[in-house]
Amino acid sequence: MTATPPPGEPLIALRGVTKTYGQGQAAFQALRGVDLSIEAGEFVAIMGPSGSGKSTTMNIMGCLDVPSGGSYLFRNIPVERLDRNQRALLRRHYLGFVFQGFNLLARTSAQENVELPLLYRGESAASRHALAREALASVGLAGVGHHTPAELSGGQQQRVAIARAIVTRPAVLLADEPTGNLDTHTSREIMELLTGLNRDRGITVLMVTHEPEMAAYAHRVIHFRDGRVASDERNGGTG
């Protein structure tokens, strides 16, 4: 896979993407022909009511699901033609994930949680330790690597989750309601952190959110409705 998209090509492109769950009378069409392009280095917020297709689209872009029809191009490579192992490799090397519920291992230290993606990649113990410490420091958590999630606040847990997502130096960070379990002040801190990663490291950020205040940090806001893109607007961003 090339290090950068071919000249003139977007980092991510969805072309006529459909997704249907079930068969026959029980079939549900979650996506009804989505066309979408994401350029490298963008910060994009994805919004829409429940059942609008935003989470399905994020799952497809995150290689957690495949379209029923149409094409998903990542760096001009048709992802729908990749097998399960190839999609796993793409996730492992190019994508990072942050979730509303943090998804940290409860009995494992912050350091070990951050090291986990590196373990899957076969990194040496020394490399894992160094990269995890660096990632924790970059999110403002230097010195807390020995703490378990239960010993950390919600905001700190989400910072650990972000450190885990960026420790592999991904091209894209997919954030699903990253501030959904946080108070307003902490939510703003997390958004400032994501904005900084986008600005300073060039990480492309794709974020699902229900909160207009959080979406205001993005360069673009895409609204989904009934399985389609309802609007795609540029945004000044507040970060």
Rank of each mutant, 00 (worst) to 15 (best):
Q25H: 14
A130S: 13
A88W: 13
A106L: 10
G70D: 08
G48E: 01
P117S: 05
A125P: 15
S127Y: 00
R128H: 06
D83N: 10
V17F: 05
A30Q: 02
A106D: 05
G122M: 13
T18W: 00
R15P: 03
V44P: 08
P49N: 01
R87Q: 15
S37K: 14
Q23Y: 15
R91M: 08
I12M: 09
G51A: 11
D35F: 09
L95Q: 02
E80L: 10
K19V: 10
Y72W: 00
G41K: 06
F99V: 09
L82M: 15
E80Q: 12
V114T: 02
G122K: 11
V34F: 00
Y21L: 14
P49Y: 03
I12V: 09
K54Q: 03
A126T: 15
L73R: 01
E9R: 08
P117M: 00
M61A: 07
R84T: 13
P7H: 08
P78T: 07
N103S: 06
M61Q: 04
T20L: 08
F99Y: 10
D65V: 07
A45E: 07
E39G: 05
D65R: 04
V66I: 14
P49F: 10
G22D: 06
E42P: 01
P117I: 03
E115D: 13
R128K: 12
N113I: 09
L104H: 01
T56M: 08
A40D: 04
P78E: 06
P78D: 13
G69F: 02
E80F: 05
K54L: 00
R87H: 01
I38T: 05
A27T: 11
D65H: 10
A88F: 12
D35Y: 02
A40M: 11
Q100T: 14
L131G: 04
G62R: 14
A125I: 11
L118F: 06
P49C: 07
G122S: 00
A13C: 14
T18L: 06
M58T: 11
F74P: 02
N85T: 14
M58H: 02
G62H: 03
G16C: 08
E134D: 15
M58A: 03
K19T: 11
L31W: 06
P7W: 13
F102K: 01
N59K: 10
M58L: 14
L105Y: 15
F74Y: 10
E9I: 01
E42D: 14
R84K: 15
P7Y: 04
R81A: 10
N59I: 12
I77V: 09
V34K: 01
G24T: 07
G101D: 15
F43V: 08
G51I: 03
L95W: 08
A40P: 01
S52H: 11
V98Q: 08
G41D: 12
D83H: 05
A45Q: 06
L89N: 04
G101V: 14
P49E: 07
V114A: 06
M47F: 13
P67W: 03
R87V: 11
V114G: 01
R107L: 12
A26V: 04
P10M: 08
L36V: 11
R84V: 12
R107M: 13
A13T: 07
G122C: 09
Q100H: 07
L36A: 12
A40C: 12
P78Y: 11
A27S: 09
L11V: 11
E80C: 08
Y72N: 04
S52A: 12
V98S: 08
V44F: 07
M47N: 03
M61W: 05
V98L: 11
S127A: 13
H129C: 14
V34G: 06
M58S: 00
